[in-house]
């Protein structure tokens, strides 16, 4: 029985890896630029916060504002990187470059293309997280070695944001329509999900909404526990939410993509 499952899983894993590897090779075409951005972005953001806003805000609870804000740099970067990759970038590959059509004429299936894209989107999130983590380590804004857990968390949240993005890609009539989830879903999360200020400052119903429906709320709660080295039992709830949502959105993305492309 196990052998049968394994025999079925091997070609699927291969297909996914070929799709991932294709995107990785494109990424490596311009390594200097592609690796410089994830380093430069957090340095600029942290400088603006640390030298600027942080000077006005002072302390959040018993930590400095920079220390409070640092995990948000990682959380939002993972969200943006993964979501952008599997929305706009995937849409370009799917619609304009016909890359999905070219690949599905080979033994690689559409499901493997979708999963390879999602895994690639998550990989970009992880690349950002790793680069930012280095900056935070140098700036003394993260607790080590516990903060290394940021990497697996970035992978999980990257997969989730990428899977949500691929769902929107599958139903978008045109590339401009992707602006809707970007501005109605991603940007509000960037501003309100415990990133720039604690979630507790929001009215209770808004907090409840954020907790129930917005993935970044859970990513931020976990990120902060990790970089501050202050875990609570709630970590399991947040983790369960993220895993549950991932399990939901991956098959949904597959179904929506099949509905769009297999005619």
């Amino acid at each position: 029985m196990n052998n049968v499952v394994l025999a079925a899983a091997v070609p699927v894993a291969r297909g996914i890896s070929h799709v991932w590897a294709r995107n990785w090779r494109v990424y490596l075409k311009n390594p200097l630029l592609n690796f410089a951005i994830p380093f430069l972005e957090p340095i600029l953001t942290l400088a603006a916060i640390g030298f600027g806003i942080g000077a006005y805000v002072g302390m959040v609870g018993d930590v400095s504002y920079s220390c409070f804000f640092a995990p948000a740099v990682i959380g939002t970067a993972v969200m943006h990187a993964a979501f952008f990759e599997c929305s706009y970038a995937s849409y370009v590959r799917m619609y304009y470059q016909k890359t999905f059509d070219a690949i599905t004429a080979t033994p690689v299936t559409l499901r493997e293309v979708v999963l390879g894209e999602v895994l690639w989107g998550a990989t970009k999130g992880v690349i950002y997280a790793a680069c930012i983590l280095v900056v935070l380590a140098i700036a003394g804004l993260a607790d080590f070695p516990a903060s290394l857990l940021v990497i697996p968390l970035a992978l999980l949240s990257g997969v989730l944001f990428a899977a949500i993005a691929i769902c929107f890609t599958a139903i978008s009539p045109g590339i401009d329509a992707l602006n809707y989830p970007m501005f109605l879903f991603i940007t509000p999360m960037f501003l309100f999900c415990g990133t720039f200020f604690p979630l507790e400052l929001l009215p209770a119903p808004v907090q409840a909404f954020a907790f129930a429906f917005l993935p970044l709320t859970h990513v931020m709660a976990l990120m902060r526990m990790i970089t501050m080295g202050a875990p609570t039992p709630y970590a399991l709830v947040h983790l369960a939410w993220l895993i549950g949502a991932t399990v939901l959105f991956i098959p949904l993305g597959n179904r929506l993509m099949e509905r769009r492309l297999i005619v």
Binding site: R22, R25, Q97, D101
Partner: peptide, 21 residues
């Protein structure tokens, strides 16, 4: 024509061959 515009002619063939393992 759905060649992969990110790659050269040769790379297109090599990348494509990977999809066939």
């Amino acid at each position: 024509t759905n060649l992969d515009p990110e790659f050269t002619a040769r790379e297109n063939l090599v990348i494509y061959s990977r999809y066939f393992d």
